[in-house]
């Protein structure tokens, strides 16, 4: 998997490191880590419903913050667990613009083997960087 949970930086919460060959892949990896935090069986989340997300931000890391926050919003507001299927990030005049297609289905405890509710993305140790031809992020979730 293109993410790894980190033990050492968040005692009460959940931290992960994710990576990808592009910004888009990194965002998809982070969405996968977020879902794996909430459900033990992400592969059991069937793509029944599709949602388009458009976001923009002057900072790439805060664009990722908003994207993950959006997925958390859908978890409560629509009771949806969502895979990030397609992410496109473009930069225009210093603004990063994200267009994403996410899909999934309503939370089903019996099927998805739920683990823990995620309250929010925190900015604690939050980081997006490009190093050694790989995009990497560190994210701490409040649970």
């Amino acid at each position: 998997m293109p993410f790894r949970f980190l033990e050492e930086i968040a005692t009460a919460d959940v931290a992960f490191k994710a990576w990808g060959n592009s910004q888009e892949e990194l965002f998809i990896s982070c969405a996968a880590a977020l879902m794996r935090t909430m459900a033990e069986a992400p592969d059991q989340v069937v793509r029944r419903q599709e949602i388009s997300i458009r976001l923009e931000h002057e900072e790439l890391d805060l664009l990722l913050f908003s994207f993950l926050q959006e997925l958390i919003f859908f978890k409560d507001a629509r009771r949806l667990l969502l895979h990030a299927d397609k992410v496109v990030i473009e930069e225009h005049d210093g603004i990063f613009i994200l267009n994403a297609i996410v899909s999934g289905e309503q939370i089903d405890g019996g099927k998805h083997h739920l683990l823990i509710d995620v309250k929010a993305v925190t900015l604690h140790r939050f980081q997006v960087l490009y190093k050694g031809n790989v995009w990497k992020a560190v994210v701490v979730l409040d649970v």
Binding site: A120, V121, L123, D142
Partner: peptide, 15 residues
């Protein structure tokens, strides 16, 4: 979720 979103909204607006 309501409280979590209030905190997240204002964290971003304060930044």
């Amino acid at each position: 979720g309501f409280g979590h979103q209030v905190a997240s909204d204002y964290l971003q607006s304060f930044l």
